[in-house]
Design a binder for these strands. Structure first.
Length: 808
DNA sequence: CCGTCCCGCCAGTAT
DNA sequence: ATACTGGCGGGACGG
């Protein structure tokens, strides 16, 4: 950790070392304790199968790069180096890189070379994938498969092909396409002529399934069937199915490492089946025109873009990302150069005197959520705000980027938050940057390298929407900024903010029923809920019938070769069990030190806790005063608790509000956000931030899982002061106003309403330096209106006897 | 026994 | 031709 101050390289290296060390240490310890015979044998214990797992490897890989790399310092990935340093065969790295590429976390630059993007693109990617998934009618396909299986129970006939053909056939476009992101640089470089059947596409589709289905749980079986069904029109043979499953495991492993999914089991009449549950960031529903994505023909080798839908989407994306408008390139040096020059241009723009950073630096902080509003409107509102704030006209330069930014940023917050909570390490630069942002001296003369941090991640697109529109308005006179949470209906009123407009704290009474506002959403949920889970399974039967001999001559050879390999010792086996026991004894606090491999159980615990917490919070007093009181004492959600123990941080909190009420607006004075206070923010912040960011590697499952809340609750806290070191986490919350306060450090809220407000606030606060980077106000999963305990764990309603169990 | 999934062959591509 | 990619599936490991 101490080393974290050193160069990123050293740090990451160290990190890796620790990781492996700790894991091996643990193993050795166990051995000492339980190994009866074989004294030294275990020392040179060959890496057990598990130690070689793709998941672990992926963790190591990920540990080398920051989740949110600062745009200024692009990290490149050299496969040779990686393979050497991680001691793995190249082949394995490809597996990892391929799925990362599918998420646009990396993109291929050239042979042997990739660029690391980190999770910056994740929100857009997921949104795009979700959109595509919807377009592909995956939901229907899933249902069809289930239905068919059910029918097959009785008459294993073969009319399924027709159904399948009709369904998947209708979406021929889904053949072999790879979802691209308009904003992803160099993405095109990865699109070479090679057949695109790959893991990449598979990975994307797999993710789509999660994003599309309501309980976000997908069984391998269904995933495999759907993926197969799409590829070839139905020639399901058993071996193909098996292969598909195998691939899915590969993908699932890296997705798990990314903490986007976790393994669960779906139990039904047939018994329990492996499945995976989405644990990644909630993806906001797409709104027409907001989502920009392009599908590229897999086999396309041309340098010209092949977009199937050159519609408003396209245009929109082009308008938003003029410099990124390029679509698809083959790997060609000239093209790469072009890209570079474009990038340089962009950099120049970003380095312009005035940038979003400055905006925040000058304390003209504001966040506008125009959820449910059209983008153009958003833009205009943004402009008016900017105008009002008397920002230098030069801002218009960055308007291009900064404007679209917000929505996008918001979307990213959940991921960021989660990530940070998990204690992932950050690069020193990143930390510095954050500190700098809040420090007075840095503000006046923003360094080019710093600015991108704010503007770039934001540079991409889709607007999010929610029923609540939090707004943070600067109040020059008093030097205090206010965060205002407005009901959508009021949003316009505020955004057209005029100098004379004075925001006033509103009494709790002045609330609006959120439920009714979200009725649409809720309805959707309830209707979708329950039909997503699969029903039966018995693919082999039908598949076997069609099985065709596809044997390869070389198979026999392989067998021989493999048989030569010496079987591993029993030692390894034993170790496994030892490892298990030890892990359990480790307890939560040490989680961050644990090796990534096994954490399902931990997760399980967590979920339980969360449930408890939810119940707990439910009972929390509904009125403000008492709420605050309580907050300070108890009701500290598990998550926060963990964070506290893990990072020694002040806990965040959210104040629960009456379920049926939603404050139509309230103000949160951001006292420290004034011009003169930057210094204090920065100093305190620095300490906080830095310490936070140095958190050691944490186990994959240790992260905070967004809790589903059944109701939206918010609080009206007119006069809280936000202090740098205080964080407020509203675990589930959304609208739960992210309120920070020294006196009120608690949390409890259980709100859950599609409202990125907390995210946005987090983001802003973090960038302003009010909140340590490692902390955040958890954003709330959007459509998770499922009854408290049910979340996605309870799929029972859907297929009656389906049931999900956590862990392996 | 069976769910996982490591391993590495080897075909297809890029240089 | 050589090196890089990555589809693929046998069969070993772990529970």
């Amino acid at each position: 950790m101490l080393i974290s101050a050193a160069s990123p390289e050293i740090r990451s290296r160290e990190q890796r070392r620790q990781l492996s060390d700790s894991s091996s240490e643990v193993l050795q310890t166990k051995h000492c304790l339980q190994e009866h015979l074989l004294g030294d044998e275990y020392e040179k214990s060959q890496p057990s199968r598990k130690e070689k797992s793709l998941g672990l490897l992926c963790h190591k890989f990920l540990a080398r790069y920051p989740d949110y790399p600062s745009p200024s310092q692009k990290s490149y990935i050299c496969l040779d180096e990686v393979t050497e340093e991680l001691h793995v065969e190249r082949r394995r790295i490809y597996d990892i890189v391929n799925v990362l590429e599918s998420l646009h976390m990396v993109s291929r630059l050239a042979r042997n070379r990739y660029v690391w993007h980190g999770r910056h693109n994740l929100p857009q990617t997921l949104q795009a994938l979700k959109k595509v998934g919807e377009d592909n009618k995956y939901i229907q396909q899933i249902q069809m498969i289930k239905k068919r299986e059910y029918e097959h129970e009785f008459d294993p006939d073969g009319e399924r092909n027709e159904e399948m053909a009709s369904s998947s056939g209708s979406s021929e476009q889904s053949e072999m396409s790879f979802v691209e992101l308009p904003g992803v640089e160099f993405r095109a470089a990865s699109v070479n002529g090679r057949k695109y059947k790959s893991l990449r596409v598979m990975s994307q589709k797999f993710v789509m399934l999660f994003l599309v289905s309501t309980p976000q749980i997908v069984s391998l079986e269904i995933a495999a069937k759907i993926l197969i069904g799409e590829d070839q029109l139905e020639d399901l043979d058993k071996s193909k199915f098996k292969t598909k499953i195998r691939r899915l495991y590969d993908i699932a492993n890296v997705l798990s490492s990314l903490k986007l999914i976790k393994k669960v089991h779906v139990t039904e009449e047939r018994g329990r089946k492996p499945a995976f549950k989405w644990t990644g960031p909630e993806v906001l529903p797409n709104t027409q025109g907001r989502c920009m994505y392009t599908k590229l023909e897999a086999t396309s080798t041309t340098s010209s873009p092949i977009s199937e839908s050159i519609t408003s989407k396209e245009q929109c994306s082009k308008a938003l990302f003029p410099s990124k408008g390029k679509q698809n390139f083959t790997r060609h040096s000239s093209l790469i150069k072009l890209v570079k020059s474009i990038e340089n241009d962009r950099r120049k723009i970003q380095s312009a005197p005035t940038t979003p950073v400055k905006i925040s630096a000058s304390m003209y902080l504001f966040i506008i959520f125009l959820l449910g509003t059209s983008f153009p409107l958003f833009l205009s509102q943004m402009r008016s705000c900017i105008r009002y704030l008397s920002l230098p006209s030069s801002h218009r330069t960055c308007t291009y980027q900064s404007l679209p930014v917000f929505p996008n940023t918001i979307a990213q917050i959940p991921a960021i938050t989660k990530h940070q909570l998990e204690g992932q390490a950050k690069t020193a630069d990143e930390m510095q940057m954050k500190c700098a942002l809040s420090s007075p001296e840095a503000v006046p003369t923003p360094e080019p390298s710093q600015q991108p941090a704010l503007s770039q991640p934001l540079g991409v697109c889709p607007a999010s929407h929610s029923s609540v529109s939090p707004v943070i308005l600067p109040h020059p006179q008093s030097g205090v900024s206010y965060a205002i949470y407005l009901h959508p209906s009021q949003a316009h009123t505020v955004t057209t903010y005029s100098p004379g407009f004075m925001l006033q704290p509103l009494p709790c009474a002045n609330v609006t029923g959120i439920k009714s506002n979200n009725s649409k959403v809720l309805n959707k949920i309830t209707t979708e809920e329950g039909n997503t889970q699969r029903g039966l399974d018995e693919p082999p039967k039908s598949l076997a019938a069609e099985e065709r001999p596809e044997t390869k001559s070389e198979t026999s050879q392989r067998c021989l070769k493999r048989s030569q390999a010496l079987p591993e010792t029993n030692l390894i086996k034993r170790r496994k069990s030892d490892e298990e026991s030890l892990d359990t004894s480790l307890g939560e606090p040490t989680k961050n030190e644990k090796p990534p491999s096994n954490s399902s159980q931990t997760n399980h615990e967590m979920d339980n806790v969360q449930e408890e917490r939810q119940n707990e919070t439910k009972t929390v007093d509904q009125n403000m005063a008492s709420c605050c009181e309580q907050c300070t004492k108890e009701n500290i959600p598990e998550d926060e608790d963990k964070i506290k123990t893990k990072q020694d941080l002040p806990v965040a909190f959210a104040i629960p509000a009456p379920e049926t009420f939603f404050p139509s607006g309230y103000l949160i004075p951001l006292t420290h956000c004034t011009h003169g206070n930057k210094a204090e923010c920065s100093t305190k912040e620095k300490a906080g931030v830095c310490s936070l960011q140095h958190t050691a590697y944490s186990s994959p499952i240790t992260g905070v899982i967004p809790m589903p809340a059944s109701e939206l609750k918010t609080v009206n806290i007119p006069a809280f002061h936000i202090t740098p070191l205080n964080i407020m986490l509203s675990p589930n919350s959304i609208a739960a106003a992210p309120v920070l306060s020294n006196s009120c450090l608690n949390s409890s809220s259980t709100s859950s309403a599609p409202n990125p407000s907390s995210s946005a606030l987090n983001f802003m606060l973090q960038h302003i330096g009010l909140i340590p980077a490692g902390v955040q106000i958890p954003a709330n999963p959007v459509l998770q209106h499922v009854p408290i305990s049910s979340q996605s764990e309870n799929i029972s309603h859907s297929s009656g006897s389906t049931n999900v169990q956590e862990g392996k």
